[in-house]
């Protein structure tokens, strides 16, 4: 039975639609879901990454919480890093955005300048920071030495974390761009009304700019939490200690997962289990963040 013209067109529309989404769909399935499902299965196995598969049930998870002496260290370091860098990044990004939002001559140049670090790959910036902070040849050390200071940067357990947190401020221009976009979406009539009512600049910022940009604060908060819990740049910055830093001071969860998977033999299944625990923690924190987002101002629709 011959198809009617209408049906043919409908099938063509559907087929072309599927064809268009096919690359993305296949990409997600092959490069995201397949490894994710595989790693979930491996997390219940004693798997060495090569040929040894042995079902061990929940043993990997039990070992993670009861036997692994590194678990506490990596979680403590990771949470400490997150607790400090996320608010710090939000605050500094916000300040940068406020500065970059000013109507000044040549401000575009500064916006580019602020955002430039985000365009440098993290590995490259890791190498850069490592060299800048080298306690023998690094220019930062030379500058500090000029003032009679001899900081230890990444070479001492007591200063390594602070140094790493300092280097993360380098990327706060990334959040700035989003905030700038949020600022541009705030209607000028709000500021005009406020001015007519006698509001000063500080009041405009605290009563209009900040409340109206809370969706971006929320977005940056969620992505910041996720990103900082997955931090692994110390693999580059503290490469000589296997990414762990002096006395394990920079040993983060993601670094441990890498070490367990690819450095310690026979631990791929355990690394997968660790990865899933991190996933659950990130999911839980994200869930909590979403559940407590009453402070987010979604504009007129949700006001």
């Amino acid at each position: 039975m011959a198809l009617t013209q209408k049906k043919k067109r409908k099938i063509q529309n559907i087929a072309s639609g599927y064809l268009f989404i096919c690359p993305v769909l296949l990409g997600i399935l092959i490069f995201t879901y397949y490894p994710a499902v595989s790693s979930f299965i491996y997390s219940f196995q004693s798997y060495d990454g090569f040929s040894k598969f042995e079902w061990v049930g929940l043993q990997n998870f039990v070992n993670l919480f009861t036997r692994d002496m590194e678990t506490g260290t990596v979680f403590a370091n990771t949470f400490l890093y997150t607790v400090i860098t996320v608010p710090l990044g939000l605050f500094l990004g916000y300040l940068l955005a406020l500065a970059a939002n000013m109507k000044l001559k040549g401000i575009s140049f500064f916006r580019v300048l602020f955002y430039l670090p985000c365009m440098i790959p993290s590995v490259a910036s890791g190498v850069l920071w490592r060299d800048l902070l080298d306690p023998d040849f690094g220019i930062m050390y030379q500058i500090f030495s000029f003032f009679g200071l001899h900081p230890t940067f990444f070479t001492s357990a007591s200063t390594a974390m602070a140094t790493l947190i300092w280097t993360t401020t380098w990327g706060c221009g990334g959040g700035m761009v989003l905030w700038l976009a949020a600022f541009k979406n705030i209607g000028p009539e709000l500021y005009e009304s406020a001015r007519l009512d006698g509001a000063n600049t500080f009041q405009c910022v605290t009563r209009i700019t900040i409340p109206m940009s809370t969706p971006i604060i929320f977005y940056n908060l969620v992505t910041g939490i996720i990103g900082s819990l997955q931090v692994s740049t110390t693999l580059v910055m503290a490469g000589s200690t296997g990414g762990r830093g002096p006395d394990n001071s920079l040993y983060f969860v993601a670094v441990k997962i890498y070490n367990d998977a690819f450095v310690r033999m026979g631990q791929m299944g355990y690394a997968c289990a660790f990865g899933w625990v991190l996933f659950v923690i990130i999911g839980a924190l994200t869930f909590v963040t979403f559940k407590t987002n009453k402070w987010v101002e979604y504009g007129e629709n949700h006001g």
Partner: peptide, 13 residues
């Protein structure tokens, strides 16, 4: 995908 993953995990090289 799930089936393939399971199959791959069950048949070591």
């Amino acid at each position: 995908t799930l089936a393939l993953s399971v199959a791959a995990c069950a048949q070591p090289h």
